[in-house]
Amino acid sequence: MSESSAGSSPVLLKVDHIAVAYGDLVAVSDVSLEVRRGELIALIGSNGAGKTTTLRAISGLLPLGAGRIELGGEAIHGLPPSKIVARGIAHVPEGRQLFPTLTVLENLELGATVSGHTRGNAETLDWVFRLFPRLRERHRQLAGTLSGGEQQMCAIGRALMARPTLLMLDEPSLGLAPVVVRSIFENLVEINRAGTTVLLVEQNVLRALGLCHRAYVIENGRIALEGPRDALAQNPHVKQAYLGM
């Protein structure tokens, strides 16, 4: 988890002053952030601050009201979600959004089908199974019958099958037991070390700050604070508002 290694690498994702509204309701008014290749970045904030909206905008699921989004220097806002996945951004959505009546294996394979990666599929699948041995044991089971933690593993695995350069996760800890959360967060660090850049959205600020390189704090639809994790963890406002100290 060294900050220096990724700190000077080129910018992978650049979100530049974006605004997103649902009809008249402005959910994100001004968010800018940068993710460098190889980093593990956390976007933290309370419920309704605009975290999920930001991720959905990056994935092309919501149109921008203003601003631009670039991946590797190329504008991606305005592209349909299918094109954005093909460019290398995989999104593990809030609530996992698996296909409950399909098997675990089918769920995983769908993650790969879509982005057009048919070759090297078996290799990626093998990696996913090594990361989450549980999924290998249960690959014939229907995804809807998995436990919450296993479903989260399946959702992460499904996203990894697209072989993304940037993996975005929306509240992977939601509704899971602390011991399960710990193991999933260990997996995230492992995925990051293996070369995948990670953008993690979390309400669980303490844990998120424990594993990221840098973090952004979002409040009322704008970025309120940003910085390396140690600086943020020492920040009086963060301590008081998010860490309950």
Partner: peptide, 10 residues
């Protein structure tokens, strides 16, 4: 099964 899920994975 899950239209939103299908959209998310592209």
């Amino acid at each position: 099964d899950n239209t939103y899920g299908a959209l998310v994975i592209g």
